[in-house]
């Protein structure tokens, strides 16, 4: 899995960053864990403060894109701040061994978990060895 730090440029498409006019939003790359487990690849990303509806996950031309927006529910005047609510954006290039149609996503307690099943042909198969005397 290769990480894309800049949005990929498609054929014939004008290069455009995720920031557009009137968008004062700032983007950060959320920290992720990526691991293999039971013939699938799991991507877990910390997206604190993101509402479920603001999260978009898509795969286009083999590039997985995570996007989310977070906002505060606190009221009152800020007295002291160590973090701010930002938008999340990160892209990964998927290898051909991922079955794109069967990707599922769960969001719980600020963590997005994507399950990327391996394509049938990439799964490990055990071949029984027969001993012929």
């Amino acid at each position: 899995m290769v990480e894309k730090t800049v949005p990929t440029q498609q054929e014939g498409q004008v290069r455009q960053s995720t920031e557009t006019t009137r968008s004062e939003a700032r983007y950060v790359a959320p920290p992720v864990d990526i691991y293999e487990e039971n013939n699938r690849l799991v991507v877990a990303a910390d997206l604190p403060g993101a509402e479920k509806d603001s999260i978009t996950v898509d795969v286009k031309d083999g590039v997985l894109t995570l996007q989310a927006a977070s906002k505060s529910h606190a009221v009152g005047n800020s007295m002291y701040a160590e973090f701010e609510f930002v938008n999340y954006y990160r892209q990964f290039e998927l290898s051909e061994t991922v079955d794109v149609d069967k990707i599922t996503a769960d969001y719980k307690h600020g963590v997005l978990q994507l399950n990327l099943p391996k394509a049938e042909r990439a799964k490990t198969k055990k071949i029984a060895v027969n001993i012929t005397p």
Partner: peptide
């Protein structure tokens, strides 16, 4: 990490803590 807010009646502490049971 925390943020602190206040108004006339309350203080609000907001902590960034994803993925905790």
């Amino acid at each position: 990490k925390i943020n602190l807010y206040d108004d006339v009646n309350n203080y609000y502490v907001e902590a960034l803590a994803p993925g905790i049971d």
